[in-house]
Design a protein around this nucleic acid. Structure first.
Length: 929
RNA sequence: GCGGGCGUGUUGAAAUUGGUAGACAAGCCAGACUUAGGAUCUGGUGCCGUGAGGCGUAUGGGUUCGAUUCCCUUCGCCCGCACCA
């Protein structure tokens, strides 16, 4: 489309869109300020990582939806906070820096500029004065600040909240370790006297076990290719989510966040959130609560005897324990391996250790194990059972040791069958010759005092017994683990910690932000230390500063709070701003953050809530997951060994290879042959076998990516059709939450609609809007639309709202309605979807102010009813029939319909008809008693 | 294996509480206006049948006067978790 000549009164989207985008920027139309006279509404998008590839047409989907909702809420009189920013620390910029030597800050800056330019073209109503970037020192000051707060806090299990570490020290000085019930690592008990006698180093070591941000040794996901550790949610099926490199398990000392302390609250508080059930389920699953009991088993290696604790949810099955199993990484392995078994055990451990996480998963069903040589004593029966070591027991869950009940646990069963261990059935009539009986139902047998009970009765009875006899106690276990918080990378927040005589010591708040130092290369040092090890003088008062940086989720955990008060250098967020904006009312983003960002952010918020820095216990009230937009690839078919391409319909007559072709030179699956020849030199001399004079391409739905040549750029759509068309079309594509392929071919219909709207206002000579009074028919079309659009927006059914607009505009076009009374309301209603054309037409109607804060049109429901004829037939009401009749159904036909319904109702109800109400075009209600 | 969801024309999809299935678009067909059309306008378009009519919401059954909608069976697809004791 070049050199198109527009008559003055034609719809010129390019001019209109740049005009209004400039207007909004110049007038700060979307600037949000605290205003106590208006209710607030906070609409948030998950901020993007600015990648080098720029935005494709799938990225803005959620942004468009949130923008529509923001604009709608403004029209409804809310004070809307709708900010945007960048999650700017991250691996790709650093990888690029490693390859090119370019500082990640430079790459990031460039990518952000590109993102901003692309977003601006779509006409979003962001308050850009509140933009944040996680890599900006003024921003990450508060990420570091939050870390220091966590370092300086412990979790009180009794009060169920975080408290200052000073209060813990006071409690220790008073009553030793028994004085508190805290979430902590492994600490040998100590008395107040012992505590008071500890030196600085000993005290520091103890306190470290209690801190919410702590340093501790743990098995971590180590990714050799990236040279860093990763959090559980950053690993999928044994590969890193970013880059897809293999990940292995390794024991390392790392900074961690005690997220597990919050497991219970994270689970309970899900209840009141307006999130989808599937997302809540994902989080519930990830948190993984299970109720059971911890039980002590006496174990002996023939020399020494110990108490070993195990966790079980099936305390009722203790009578069926025929062996015990330890995780290979368990500390018990060393204690319980007897000299005779030493060689076999070591061999087994070496084998298990060598496997990567990936290999373990692949062999998930393969049973491996080795006997330790030791025996445990069943605390209820007194029987001696062997202690084995097996990979299927996980070190990180429970106590890393289990009691095995092969009759009623399929994993234990497989182990028992492999190593020929005894199987004792405990439920009457169950058959365990082929498989275990895992269901929690039936009557207990072979189980001493539990005999005759149902399983559901036996579980609590067994735990009661165990508690009474001091063998164990009730326990709730969570799957959720602490978050590993160190990354051996450059492009992240430095830890404001230094090591004074080996003691991890926080910097003071005045020293924040601790800025990232310059380094000569972005690679680990020769001695294997993280890139910060290359920084000159990375010390504080002569002491070394921590060399790791924080992970990606650090900066994104509290960004929604920072938007409330982005320029405050005294606090993350002022009390005033926090109490006004409070929490996010609507959060839109992808599901991929279900078990990462959305858990960490909730944890972070709860922590700040405990300390009194924020006033809401949950950050995101309502959450919507927009679907992913896939690509729709096109193919051409080259006849083998030739440069001849055969059209899709004829390809079966030849032997061909399928070749991806750039979707931008295909229209409605028809190839632009000239563009194809120009696309790549090798196709310049291509020949074609056409059908009906055209080359038809094949197609497939694939991920949108450069290599498939199916990337559609929003800039291109804005150039060809305009931002309003893009916005409307993205919504029209289908339900917001559903994943769907992008296919540009339907866009003409939406574009046509927008031009139809324009033509209601203008003909070729100018504005045609009159001040005549609207007819009932016209008002009916309008009010039907207002009612529909309002409910659709409220329920995020934007696709059907767009359809409703199309229907209404078709009706108004047929009625030749160009009346101000109707059109003014129409464009206010439409303005959230297509703001540019709405502003332009609003101005044309003589308004001086932006349409942004126009009043949302009123919906008069009565209108439709008043203008219809009403039939009333009495029935006698119990059963209710609802029938919709078409708007234009002739009266006789309606009568016939009513008679039919009466017949039916009489048949059903035996003639006791009370009432039939018929509103043509609406509903027929028949009430029968 | 466990948990959640889905299955409607050629395509994207509509269908308040069970009440004319396929709205609104795309595509296709025919026509009008055009030098032209990737412009505009009009009409048609679920399937079978010339027709009347019949059949249709993955499959088979059930509840109901009435089922895309509720219940059960089978098949297929998608997503999440995955040795969590």
């Amino acid at each position: 489309m070049q050199d198109i000549y527009y008559r003055p009164m034609e719809y010129n989207f390019k001019e209109i869109e740049s005009k209004w985008q400039a207007y909004w920027a110049a007038n700060h139309t979307f600037k949000a300020e605290i205003d106590n006279s208006k209710p607030k509404y906070y609409v948030l998008d998950m901020f993007p990582y600015p990648s080098g590839a720029g935005l494709h047409v799938g990225h803005p989907l959620g942004y468009i939806a949130s923008d529509i909702y923001s604009r709608y809420k403004r029209l409804c009189g809310f004070n809307v906070l709708h900010p945007m920013g960048y999650d700017a620390f991250g691996l790709p910029a650093e990888q690029y820096a490693i390859q090119t030597g370019q500082h990640p800050a430079v790459t990031t800056e460039k990518n952000i500029a590109r993102y901003r330019e692309q977003m601006d073209r779509i006409g979003f109503s962001y308050d850009w004065s509140r933009e944040v970037r996680t890599c900006d020192p003024g921003y990450y000051k508060w990420t570091q600040w939050a870390f220091l707060q966590m370092f300086d806090s412990w979790y009180d299990n009794v009060q169920q909240k975080a408290r200052p570490i000073a209060e813990l020290e006071a409690a220790f000085a008073e009553g030793g370790s028994a004085a508190v019930d805290a979430a902590c690592g492994e600490v040998a008990p100590f008395t107040a006297e012992e505590w008071n006698g500890f030196d600085e180093k000993q005290k520091a070591a103890v306190l470290m076990q209690y801190r919410i941000a702590y340093q501790g040794e743990t098995a971590v996901n180590w990714c050799p290719a990236l040279g860093t550790v990763l959090a559980n949610d950053e690993v999928k099926e044994g590969y890193s989510v970013r880059g897809g490199h293999p990940v292995e398990q390794k024991k390392m000392t790392q900074w961690q966040l005690r997220v597990s302390a919050y497991a219970g609250r994270l689970l309970e508080d899900l209840e009141d959130l307006d999130w989808t059930d599937s997302l809540k389920d994902m989080q519930r699953n990830w948190i993984g609560k299970s109720q059971g009991a911890e039980m002590n088993f006496k174990v002996s290696n023939g020399v020494e005897e110990y108490d070993m604790t195990i966790f079980t949810t099936r305390a009722d099955t203790v009578f069926g324990v025929t062996f015990m199993v330890l995780a290979p990484e368990s500390e018990w392995v060393e204690k319980l391996t007897t000299p005779e078994q030493k060689e076999a055990v070591e061999e087994y451990l070496a084998m298990a250790k060598k496997k990567t996480e990936r290999e373990r998963m692949m062999e998930a069903r393969k049973v491996t194990g080795v006997f330790s040589g030791s025996y445990a004593t069943n605390p209820l029966t007194g029987d001696k059972v062997p202690v084995w070591i097996g990979e299927y027991v996980l070190a990180g869950y429970g106590t890393g040791a289990i009691m095995a009940v092969p009759a009623h646990d399929s994993r234990d069963y497989a182990f028992a069958k492999t190593f020929d261990l005894p199987i004792i059935p405990l439920i009457e009539g169950c058959n365990v010759s082929e498989s275990s009986f895992d269901a929690k139902e039936g009557i207990m047998c072979n189980s001493g005092f539990l005999n005759g009970m149902t399983v559901k009765e036996a579980i609590p009875a067994a735990i009661d017994y165990v508690e009474k006899h001091g063998i164990g106690h009730r326990k709730i276990n969570y799957r959720l683990r602490d978050a590993i918080f160190s990354r051996q990378r450059y492009w992240g927040e430095p830890f404001p910690m230094y090591f004074k005589d080996g003691i991890a010591t926080p910097m003071t708040l005045e020293q924040l932000p601790l800025q990232l130092p310059e380094v000569d290369k972005y690679l680990p040092t020769e001695s294997g230390e993280p890139p910060l090890g290359r920084a000159a003088d990375w010390t504080y008062e002569g002491y070394p500063i921590e060399l790791s940086t924080m992970p990606g989720f650090a900066g994104s955990s509290a960004y929604y709070l920072r938007y409330m008060d982005p320029h405050n250098d005294q606090a993350l967020v002022s009390r005033e701003a926090d109490e006004y904006w409070r929490d996010v009312d609507l959060y839109i983003g992808g599901t991929e953050h279900a078990t990462g960002h959305l858990i960490y952010s909730r944890f972070w918020n709860k922590f700040l809530f405990d300390l009194g820095y924020v006033c809401e216990k949950e950050p995101f009230k309502k959450l919507i997951n927009q679907g992913m937009i896939q690509g729709r690839s096109n193919f051409v078919y080259r006849i083998i060994n030739t440069n001849t391409f055969v059209s899709y319909g004829l390809k079966d007559q030849y032997e061909t290879t399928e070749i991806h072709v750039d979707v931008n030179i295909v229209r409605n699956d028809r190839l632009d042959i000239e563009a194809f020849k120009a696309w790549m030199p090798e196709f310049a001399t291509a020949e074609f076998i056409l059908e009906d004079g055209e080359y038809i391409c094949g197609w497939a739905i694939e991920k949108m990516s450069k290599s498939m040549f199916n990337v559609v750029n929003p800039d291109m759509i804005c150039d060809t059709y305009g931002a309003d068309t893009l916005r409307l079309y993205e919504m029209f594509l289908g339900p917001l939450e559903q994943s769907k392929p992008w296919d540009t071919k339907g866009i003409d219909g939406v574009n046509r609609f927008i031009r139809k709207v324009w033509r209601l206002f203008y003909d070729r000579d100018g504005l045609i809007v009159t001040d005549e009074k609207a007819t009932p028919e016209e008002l009916k079309a309008l009010h039907k639309l207002i009612g529909k659009v309002r409910t659709d927006i409220e329920s995020f059914s934007f696709n059907t709202a767009v359809s409703a607009f199309m229907i209404a505009v078709n009706e108004l076009t047929d009625l030749k309605c160009s009346k101000r009374e109707v059109l003014e309301q129409l464009i206010v209603l439409l303005s959230p979807f297509t703001p540019h054309i709405a502003e332009e037409l609003w101005e044309a109607l003589g308004h001086k102010e932006s349409i942004t804060y126009a009043a949302f049109p009123e919906y008069i429901e009565a209108y439709t009813v008043e203008n219809s004829c009403t039939y009333a037939v009495s029935f006698n009401g119990k059963m209710r029939f609802t029938v919709e009749l078409p708007v234009d159904m002739p009266r006789e036909e309606v009568d016939a319909h009513v008679r039919g319904l009466e017949q039916t109702a009489k048949y059903v109800a035996g003639g006791n008809i009370v009432k039939v109400i018929v509103v043509p075009g609406k509903i027929v209600n028949i009430v029968v008693k």
